[in-house]
Design a protein around this nucleic acid. Structure first.
Length: 598
DNA sequence: GAGCATGATTGGAG
DNA sequence: CTCCAATCATGCTC
């Protein structure tokens, strides 16, 4: 690995001693793991065959207590690894004997469960000193495609990308599938409903939605494997992208989620491709309505208050079916070790239904924004028919009917512009949501959890659209519109990870603080910000530290002139300088000045 | 409210 | 396109 790669790896992995536990497949996919800094360092020999032992691998008494409660349940393998291991599939090693040597449940660091329903509600658990981390963030951060894809969401998203998520959210029973197919047929989008097979759905799945999110995820992973045949030789390429967007969830920084954490979906990384990796743990059948003072919008925030709620998590969880290749590897490996297989009851989508738009260039190693403009129209889609991406999540979904100010205008515009089927689904989602869940205040959760929840409640609103708001070209025009539209701040503070990444680079390159395009892209990716933000940050940084080329040169010229003046003053007493020498020195400085571009 | 820090934007230069 | 300087916009502190 090159030195640069080493550096990048170090940046991604953060503290090399940091321990991240992947409790199991399910929690991994939920983007949750626990980094327990207060735990004891006990790891029995029994587990050594299973885990990638690490000096900091830890087990808490609390975990053990939980474990003991679940001892009777079937044992799941637990993978404990360092972040760097997770970040690098090659290092993500699980010993061979793990397959034949199940862990001792008494030493199992986290709750055992073999099905989704057995996973205790995370928000009810109190892991002292634990932080919510997201190992997938680090893994996904290495894939520039993820970010590029997100950043080039210029307002139009090809319909292909909507189907998987859309379908999975709202049409998970045969009746819905049929309805959906009918709608598609009606829309004349050259839609072949046979591609949406329902044969795997049991008749009673209408009421028994037994397919959990992990089921779904692995279905997609299986599908991804099929798709992957189309793109042989493209190691970096993934058809699905990790639902990771909030850098502060990442073990890169180890920063826990707080009220200051950025919204999972921002203007810079459109929500569709970067679903909130954390909020799912707060989504369940309980909801609270919070009025955001700034926007006067109401948001539902789902908070699991019981294990029962948590069990029902997948009923409303719209985790996008996107994952990085690394995620796939991780999940597949975990699934393999646990012997877990996708459960019945969920339709398998053939690749052609979900494949990337045909405009995608497969033959280039440089998949860059500038080269490949936003999704071109391809076969199977009516020319000119593009739809705005809908963020089909019910986490923090604005309720248009209750919005009275700025946000309402925005939301209504978005929803009313949706295709009828999406509009219907969106409405239905909210309706179902309201029917299913009574509005009530947060119950007394553990303080840490409550704080985190409040963080989400108070975070910036997430538009249901991924469409990057089109800003007026003139700010003064914006001001005029302010009469009715409350301005959305354009200078949201950058996340700490992004700043630290750029700061580090700047300090290391103080003499030449001009990152290359690749450097900028790397920093953007690692920092979870856009390339534009990187550019802007460096421009401001250079300017405000008087480190721009013109300023540096001016300073150099001034210093040389000053030095010459000192020399003149000094040598005047000695009378050793003649006019010719002074002129020569001044000319040299002037010549140098003219050579430097401004 | 002033002062400051910071992020974004603008228009010009190259 | 990048870079720059100026400026705008916003939030924070006092």
């Amino acid at each position: 690995m090159s030195e640069e790669n080493d550096r990048k790896s170090a940046q991604v992995s953060g503290d090399s001693t940091e321990t991240v536990k992947l409790p199991d497949l399910y929690t991994a996919m939920a983007g949750i793991c626990y980094n327990n800094s207060h735990s004891t360092s006990s790891k029995s020999d029994e587990n050594k065959g299973l885990v990638d032992t690490h000096p900091d691998s830890t087990v808490t008494k609390q975990h053990q207590a939980i474990d003991s409660q679940d001892d009777k349940k079937s044992v799941q393998n637990t993978v404990v690894s360092t972040v760097s291991d997770i970040s690098d599939s090659q290092n993500y090693h699980v010993p061979e004997q793990a397959k034949s040597q199940p862990p001792s449940s008494s030493n199992h660091p986290l709750p055992n469960f073999s099905t989704w329903d057995q996973l205790p509600c995370p928000s009810l658990q109190n892991y002292p000193g634990s932080q919510i981390l997201n190992p997938l963030a680090a893994a996904a951060a290495q894939y520039s495609e993820y970010y590029n894809l997100s950043s080039r969401s210029t307002g139009m998203v090809y319909e292909d990308w909507q189907y998987p998520v859309y379908y999975s959210n709202y049409y998970d029973n045969p009746a819905d599938v049929a309805k959906y197919c009918e709608q598609q047929k009606h829309m004349d989008v050259n839609f072949d409903k046979t591609k949406l097979s329902t044969e795997n759905l049991s008749q009673d799945s209408i009421v028994d939605r037994s397919c959990s999110t992990p089921d779904l995820v692995l279905s997609v992973l299986q599908m991804e494997n099929q798709i992957k045949g189309e793109i042989n030789g493209k190691d970096r390429l993934n058809h699905w992208y990790s639902p990771v967007s909030s850098p502060d969830c990442s073990p890169i920084t180890g920063i826990p989620i707080t009220a200051e954490s950025p919204a999972p979906s921002t203007e810079q990384d459109s929500g569709f491709f970067s679903e909130d990796p954390v909020s799912p743990i707060f989504m369940s059948h309980k909801q609270t309505v919070t009025q955001l003072e700034e926007t006067n919008q109401k948001y539902y925030v789902y908070v699991p208050e019981s294990n029962e709620d948590w069990k029902n998590y997948h009923h409303i969880n719209p985790v996008p079916l996107m994952c990085s290749d690394m995620t796939r590897k991780m999940v597949n490996k975990s699934a393999m070790l646990s012997g877990w297989k996708p459960g019945p009851g969920y339709p398998m989508y053939p690749p052609e239904v979900l494949s990337r738009n045909p405009g995608f260039k497969q033959d280039s190693d440089n998949w860059q924004v500038s080269k490949y403009p936003q999704f071109s129209m391809g076969k199977g889609h009516k020319s000119g028919l593009k739809t705005k991406a809908v963020r089909p999540t019910r986490c923090a979904t604005p309720i248009p009917s209750t919005i009275t100010s700025t946000g309402q205008v925005q939301s209504d515009k978005i929803t009313s512009s949706l295709p009828s089927n999406m509009m219907e689904a969106h409405t239905a989602a909210n309706k179902i949501s309201q029917e299913m869940h009574s509005v009530q205040a947060l119950s007394p959760l553990e303080k840490s959890t409550k704080d985190i929840v409040n963080g989400f409640i108070n975070r910036k609103p997430t538009l249901i659209s991924t469409v990057k708001p089109s800003l007026p070209t003139k700010r003064k025009l914006e001001a005029i519109d302010e009469k009715n539209v409350k301005r959305v701040r354009h200078n949201e503070p950058l996340n700490q990870q992004g700043i630290s990444v750029m700061q580090r680079w700047y300090e290391q390159n103080h003499e030449n603080p001009y990152p290359s395009k690749q450097d900028k892209e790397d920093m953007a990716r690692l920092g979870g910000i856009s390339v534009t933000q990187v550019k802007s940050w460096f421009a401001n940084k250079r300017n405000r530290t008087n480190n721009t080329r013109p300023k540096v040169h001016k300073r150099n010229v001034e210093e040389k002139l000053l030095e010459l003046c000192h020399q003149l003053a000094s040598d005047a007493r000695k009378s050793t300088l003649d006019n010719a020498f002074v002129i020569q020195q001044l000319s040299a400085i002037i010549d140098e000045h003219h050579q430097v571009p401004h």
